[in-house]
Nucleic acid binder design. Sequence first.
DNA 1: GCCCTGAATTGGGTTACCCAGTTGGAGCTT
DNA 2: AAGCTCCAACTGGGTAACCCAATTCAGGGC
Lengths: 236, 236
Amino acid sequence: MRDEALLPAPGLRLSERVIERIGRLVEAGEVRRDARFPSERALETRWGVSRLVIREAFRALEVQGVVESRPGGGRFLRADRVPDLARLRRIRLETGRVPLLRLWEAREAVEAQAAALAALRATPAQRDAIARPLRLTEALAPEALRHTNVNAEFHLAIARACGNPVLEELIGDLISRSQAEGFRHLLEVEDWSALQAGHRPILDAIAARDPEAARRSMAEHFAALRRRLDRDDLPG
Amino acid sequence: MRDEALLPAPGLRLSERVIERIGRLVEAGEVRRDARFPSERALETRWGVSRLVIREAFRALEVQGVVESRPGGGRFLRADRVPDLARLRRIRLETGRVPLLRLWEAREAVEAQAAALAALRATPAQRDAIARPLRLTEALAPEALRHTNVNAEFHLAIARACGNPVLEELIGDLISRSQAEGFRHLLEVEDWSALQAGHRPILDAIAARDPEAARRSMAEHFAALRRRLDRDDLPG
DNA sequence: GCCCTGAATTGGGTTACCCAGTTGGAGCTT
DNA sequence: AAGCTCCAACTGGGTAACCCAATTCAGGGC
């Protein structure tokens, strides 16, 4: 049962090599979905590394939603496979900052779909949640808007109303990455009023339960923003 | 400089509370993008927790691409904000398994966009990389296909050719999640031949540099698959 | 000004230890 | 035989004191 010892490798932390080992544990069928992993102590002696390393590895998998830890209970597999986090780390480091335009291409695709589905599936309460930030938007001065996040709230409300947790998760991620890239600062005041004007037809289409109109108006919303950004220099 | 001491909170590990603290460090402007964090030892005494906890927190942020650790060098911020990983963990645990249909709604949106962009931007080499799995697909018997991953290869090649690292990352993630949900087993043999038939128009549209045709044919590809799945019982 | 050196510092990792929940079985009751 | 209680063993969470190799960076010599 004792595998070959784990030795440090160049450029790879021990905890990352442990993640690989955990992946093999799963591939070999030794641990299946919703089953319990061997304890920290057991893996410690089996792989010849300290508990700290084991714990760091599982912690990383935990934030990925792959593993659930229950103090006193044990650790459980919550997926069917274990992602290669070391590879993911390398990719993210190489990629570096993502140009806003690329983020928006992704948002356009995913949010147009969400708008269409929201038109079909939104409950009355969700419809209201979409309308609320828009009412705020139209009441405030464009300059004031810049410092709020009602814009993000509008998009998030649609994401929540589309009835698809995957799309909801993706949109939330993309929005926070857009904000991280600081798109707020790229737009002029007149752009912000154009922004709010673009929200109205989306809401109307969702209220009318017209999925294709919702899809079109969301896509047009992003296309308009893209045209505005195209004036400026855009890397990538 | 010494903040209030960090005490355990119900349902929240210490390392998650440290992640919050790190987030505040960034919000307060004490650490900016590409700047160095205080050392493990410094934060240990400042927040009154052990190094292990500090390290687990940073490790979690590292796999998210938010932080880079350099042994001997220090830790560096690689984003403009720190995500709330504890919230993310709760969401993923609540969501649980995602119905295949929901994954495909997301894939349809994001891959149709990728196909359109690939039609515009793919290099000759990338075009070839898209054609290769298709040639294999058409040479093999449908039954044999079931046990290969040429299907996934075709979709990944398009993702890589779209010139957008964000879309590429999203598609890779969604595909592996689809495979984790075991969609291989849901389809009958005749479905697999229909699958490969659906790939051909996509490739043709990309080869013809026709973005809208590429988008349409990719969307139709997923719509056809969805119709096939609709026959069976589908949760959610 | 330039390069070299060496001590201080930094993250990576180990070991030994303590704590509070969870688990599961032994042994009792019904 | 089925169900109960209770306790010992186990599990993850966390601390403390170490050691190591790599990176930094201030000073000194040229």
